[in-house]
Simulated assay, not measured.
Amino acid sequence: MRILNICAYTWEIGGPARIIFDHTTEALKMGHEVDILSPMTPGDEIYDVPTGARVIPCIRTTPVSRFYREFSVGLLGYLRKHIQEYDIVHIHGIWHFGSLAPFLVRNRVPKVITIHGLLDEWAVNHHKWKKDLVTLLYQKSILAKADLIQINNADEEKNVIDYLGFRPKNLVTIPNGIRMDEYQNLPPRGSFRQQFGIPEEKRLVLFMGRMNIKKGLDLLLPAFADYLRENDEAILILAGPEDGYLAETTKFIAENGLAESIKYVGMLTDTTKLSVLADADLFVLPSYSEGFSIAVLEALASGVPALVSDRVGFGEYIRKYEAAYLTPLTVDGVTEGLSIMLENDSTRAAYAKRGREMVAQNFDITQVAKKMLAAYSSVLRS
């Protein structure tokens, strides 16, 4: 099977790139061929590419791409020449040109769309006028024409039904997954603290994700400041690429004199990311909207207790397993969660144990990738 993924395959995009990487790795093992068509801006850093896969970068065409995400004449040109060479085209996300382009080219290749949480109420209301326009022009018709719509959970199912006004027959629920074996042997505890000068007596609270308001930073920052008024034996590490909220974050830290208690370390990769997971006492993500948070899965797989919202993409699993502390989306709620989790070692240990069990039993990438490939095959048969 020849598979073409369409996604901005860069470090800045975060979770979707990691998802494609893991699925591609498994597909290659099973003898399939995978290409990744990636609209990019000059200077973007391509995400790691599995050996045997191919990334085809297409420059975003300005000034149009500033207003219409990922618009690329090169992307459209590649599809016109080559789309018929593939058995499956897998489109990651909606609202952007990459999701429209395969439908502008005459072809009969089956198309799969992964929603990635982009029909969540918060996501739809963000830049709502643009999404209303895209809906009016084509978005609903594209979803109706897709051969398969992949969702992660029951919340996304409801979002699709509410958006279209009916339940499409081509809807399939397949969760995201991660490689559990990557998180079994972490670096020695203390290496991240030593590298960044963090005292051993400070409890390390880790936020790992794009610096975007949808991640709940407007709740986490004041909540952590409130917690410090009662107990200053903690430090918050903010790890992730800038995505619109770094200036507000920096301003908050300066205005509240928290430069020693809240540190932004940028995006962490490879060994450094594993070392911060090894050293973290608590992972936090009070997000308003996630398709399916790979960062939360990574933390839980690493045995890090977590404080998250139920909007991270698999809230029903977290409730079933009591795998993480679920916080309400308020400053007071996050503050209370920080107090409960940071001041009770046995509570954190119990959450960590249940969280790792949840990931191992439900989200190992080997099993998840097989489900995705089986879904491709069912589309081809039909």
Rank of each mutant, 00 (worst) to 15 (best):
Y317W: 12
Y317K: 14
Y264V: 12
T327P: 02
Y351H: 11
F252W: 04
S289P: 06
L300D: 00
G291A: 08
N362W: 09
V359Q: 01
E316T: 11
A323W: 00
P241D: 09
S346L: 14
T272H: 10
A352G: 11
T335G: 06
L282E: 02
Y317C: 08
L282M: 06
Y325L: 14
F283L: 10
T269Q: 13
D279P: 10
L285C: 02
V331R: 05
E316R: 15
S293G: 09
M341K: 04
A259W: 05
S275V: 02
S293V: 07
N344A: 14
L300F: 05
P305A: 12
G333K: 10
S293M: 09
P328W: 13
G303Y: 01
N362C: 12
S261W: 00
E298A: 12
V308Y: 04
D243P: 02
R229L: 10
G315W: 01
E242K: 10
N256I: 08
G291N: 01
A301L: 04
K320D: 15
I340T: 12
T335Q: 03
Y264W: 12
G337L: 06
Y288N: 04
D270R: 15
A259V: 07
S309T: 05
E298G: 15
A324V: 12
L282H: 01
E357K: 12
T250R: 11
E230R: 15
D345G: 04
K320V: 08
L342S: 03
D232P: 09
K353C: 13
T327I: 08
I235K: 00
F314T: 02
R348F: 11
E357C: 03
R229G: 08
L282Y: 00
A234S: 12
E242Y: 08
Y288M: 11
A247D: 14
S309A: 06
A259S: 15
T335P: 01
E322L: 13
R356T: 08
R319C: 09
P305L: 04
L258G: 02
E255A: 11
S289A: 14
Y288S: 05
K273Y: 07
V308G: 01
L238T: 03
D310F: 08
Y325N: 11
I253F: 04
A350C: 11
F283S: 05
N362H: 13
I237Q: 01
I253Q: 03
R356E: 07
